[in-house]
Amino acid sequence: MLSKEDSRRLAQLERQLQRDDPDFCARMGGGNFSVTTSGRPPLPLFITAAVIAVAAVLLGLAGWWIAAAVVATWAAITATAAGFRMRKARNRARP
Score class of each variant (00 low, 15 high):
1 M>Y: 09
2 L>M: 08
2 L>N: 09
5 E>P: 07
6 D>E: 09
6 D>K: 08
7 S>P: 10
7 S>M: 10
10 L>P: 06
11 A>T: 07
15 R>L: 02
16 Q>I: 04
16 Q>Y: 02
18 Q>T: 11
18 Q>N: 09
19 R>S: 03
19 R>T: 06
24 F>A: 08
25 C>V: 00
26 A>K: 12
29 G>E: 06
29 G>T: 03
29 G>K: 00
30 G>L: 12
31 G>I: 04
32 N>H: 10
33 F>Q: 05
33 F>Y: 08
35 V>L: 03
35 V>R: 07
36 T>P: 14
37 T>S: 05
38 S>P: 06
42 P>A: 10
42 P>G: 08
45 L>P: 02
45 L>H: 06
46 F>G: 03
46 F>Q: 03
49 A>V: 04
52 I>T: 13
53 A>L: 01
57 V>C: 09
58 L>C: 09
58 L>I: 11
58 L>R: 06
58 L>T: 11
59 L>T: 14
61 L>E: 14
61 L>Q: 14
61 L>C: 12
62 A>W: 13
62 A>G: 15
67 A>P: 11
67 A>M: 03
69 A>L: 07
71 V>D: 12
75 A>W: 07
75 A>Y: 11
78 T>D: 14
78 T>H: 08
81 A>K: 06
82 A>V: 07
82 A>C: 01
83 G>N: 04
83 G>Q: 11
85 R>M: 02
86 M>I: 00
89 A>Y: 06
90 R>L: 02
90 R>E: 13
91 N>M: 01
92 R>L: 13
92 R>H: 13
93 A>D: 07
95 P>D: 07
